[in-house]
Amino acid sequence: MPNALSKTLRISTSPHVVRGLGTEVIMRNVVYAMIPVAAFAVYAFGLNALVVLAISVLSCVITEHYLCRWSNKESTVSDWSAVITGLLLGLTLPPSFPLWMAFAGGVIAIALGKFTFGGLGYNVFNPALVGRAVLQAAFPVAMTTWSPAFIEGRFSHVSSSLFTLPFMSPTVDGITGATPLAALKFEQVSTGTTDLALGLISGSTGETCGVLIILGGLYLIIRKMMNWRIPVAILGTVYILSGLFHLINPVVYPTPMFMLFSGGLMLGAMFMATDMVGSPITNLGVLIYGVVIGVLVVVIRLWGGLPEGVMFAILIGNALSNHIDHLIRPKAYGTA
């Protein structure tokens, strides 16, 4: 059959490019989906959040550009992936985070999380989360100094801690607020679900408004640019597992809705765990991956030393995804 042979068989690693839907198009749409989240962050936290987001995006793009030039590759800045990393990183940082730390986080995210593995498509871990993990380990105090949302004068006044000189520690000005998860873990105070879902709480810039994150995710799912099984598996696992614990002992364990809408779970499940490079390829693999992350989130939150576990859960999930693919690989007929 000469006709069949004349067609080229294309073999590539993920992201698989089918029918002209290039990396750049998908990435651009992910950015569209994240714009409402970022906009709400700016609305809730004012100029602080705007500056932090801008700096983390800028540092990611600059790092990407220079590392591409340094390794004699064509600059991949125009494919939007560095912008996404920067946005995601910025959305996981506290609103009054010192800018030099945010910049360092962006450099680490791209250099350590992406380029040491060979650039886009080869990174084992979600770069934004790598950046955040290093920041969390290096500056635990600054990473957990939250300023409350909707304070007055947030559009005219910028927190002085933002402009801390490089390598200096920030001075905490004004009021700080505990995140709902920290309040639950250390003070046994629960926050109402409506406040959580609408984002009327303190926390990282982008992890507050669950509803907008879901809308962004839905947009991507409808446009078939994201595997819906990942967020569904993660959120479903968290809901069922924490629901079980809540049924067993409602005094100690929070409600499943609280677990779903608090912390970075929504953001992580929608935009970070769904990173095409770091997640398994097959549908079954993706489901296993989501369940593993969901279980880890619940375990770390309920029994771990840290109030929030989404970051580590996704990083562990990233590390496992290759092995999940390997485990569930279909056997060729006739082999053992």
Binding site: A138, A142, F167, M168, P170
Partner: peptide
């Protein structure tokens, strides 16, 4: 730590990268 051989290299409010002293 912001020091070399115990001598401070930075002003007092140096933010130490705690992770650097840890095994990681």
């Amino acid at each position: 730590n912001g020091t070399l051989f115990g001598l401070a290299l930075f002003p007092d409010n140096f933010e130490s990268w705690i992770v650097m002293i840890l095994p990681a």
